[in-house]
Nucleic acid binder design. Sequence first.
RNA 1: GGCGCCAUGGUCUAACGGUUAGGACACGGCUCUUUCAAGGCCGCGGCGGGGGUUCAACUCCCCCUGGCGCUACCA
Length: 491
Amino acid sequence: MERVRVRFAPSPTGFAHIGNMRNAVFDWLLAKHAGGEFILRIEDTDRARYVEGALEEIFEALRWLETPYDEGPVQGGPFGPYFQSERLDIYAKYAKQLVEQGDAYYCFCTSERLAEMRKGQEARKEPTGYDRTCLKLSPEEVEANLAAGVPAVIRFKVPYKGETAFCDLVRGEITFRNELLDDFVIIKSDGYPTYHFASIVDDHLMQITHVIRSEEWISSTPKHMLMYAALGWNPPKWVHPPLILGQDGSKLSKRHGAVRFLDYKEKGYLPETMMNFIALLGWSPGEDRELFTTEELIERFSIDGIVNHPVKFDLSKLDWMNGVYMRQADLGRITELCLPYLTEAGLIPENPSPEELSYAKAVIALVQDRMKVLSEAPELTEFFFREDCRYDEKGMKKWLSRDYVLELLRNLAGRIEASAEFTIESLEEAVRMAGEDMDAHGGQVIHPVRMAVTCRTAGPGLFETMEVLGRARVIQRLNRAIGILSESRDD
RNA sequence: GGCGCCAUGGUCUAACGGUUAGGACACGGCUCUUUCAAGGCCGCGGCGGGGGUUCAACUCCCCCUGGCGCUACCA
């Protein structure tokens, strides 16, 4: 049994997106499951589309997901370099071999000519494809052009006869007629290889056993098969997981928003959520279950479970799942993760004191169960930090406008000030007693007090909230409300 | 247009010829409860259409329809 070697081969042409990372997760899970290697290879062959910072995104995304690679940039490995831009001589060597064998040839057609050719073909409703003009060039003409420095590409000479079949481990055998292919470029005029060529050369040299890449690559696989055959190499196993679709059913892309993988980190999703959720994006363990630890995913992952149809990205399910992991997570960790959001919102200072930290932790403890994502923290906890929180208008009208409320709050403030204790129990008792004095009960008491103390109608348990707020803040809030109410009564 | 892939509720998925078609999210209701969540319970809702094959089709085959992808000196 050969050792499983899989590679994640992103291009630094933009941010790492959900689709990339889904493939990375499949790669990683398969490698871990099989005890094989997970390799990172950077396919930086498109100099025009190179994006500054894209590389760092990829590294950061893998780091956040905790899917370390065994070989790749930075630490290297026995099959490096792992940047395709550093392997140009390798591609040149094999391209030359193909030319010498007669399986590839130089082409000097300008992009203008190519565009014109294509236009004509379209007008005549013919299939588009290179017309092999340069294949007719004599060796002398080719030499002369090359010597004169005429810009040239190298094209692979597709055998137009017959058909090419391959086995996709997700869908079974797939066959294409060769005549539908055209002589595609393998080396561009800038000397860089195209994806098609670089990837097959590297997959072979790096001894990749399984190529996992999205469904969109199925149509180009025959090209790859033809090149493997021309070079006398054994192709790897092809695995094409389904495309990930946006809510509108088209291929997930920038216009759908929220496809940048690290956006999910910034919005406050937990990495364990993303691992779990993404693993299920086109793969099913076949159980009536959807929550899995990473270890369980590794144990269960298999190519058999990869589904063969496109899947839509369901944000509401992601939210649900993150809520589940949020509730399970350690309070200290969640607090730590919430801090940047609280700081950003100006609720706590950049470098909080130990007291501020433990206050924050007590606050988060009350909302941890109610959070779907970390970024909700400021909104959920604002009133714990701001003395002058804004009263919810509807709630104000509903609960603070009643006649007995002013007296109720005065009564309660008095009781709390007078009491030596300040605990959940003593607070509950004080609120109940104040209510009894007003002949008000249950919600008639609780709601006005909640409004006065938190400025809003919903939140964690009232007595826990008051306890965390502390005596000073509670009194301050009560007095604030009392002030407003007595003023409006004077009017 | 050509080629290719695909098709179970709104969404994700189970079923690998014989099930009252199962589970999850979402949605609706009830419940718990000081509110909001969470939880528990209940419910809504599906095999795209047509032909075959078979004693028996969601499952196998064909056609149609529909969706998506590819069709670059981008990946």
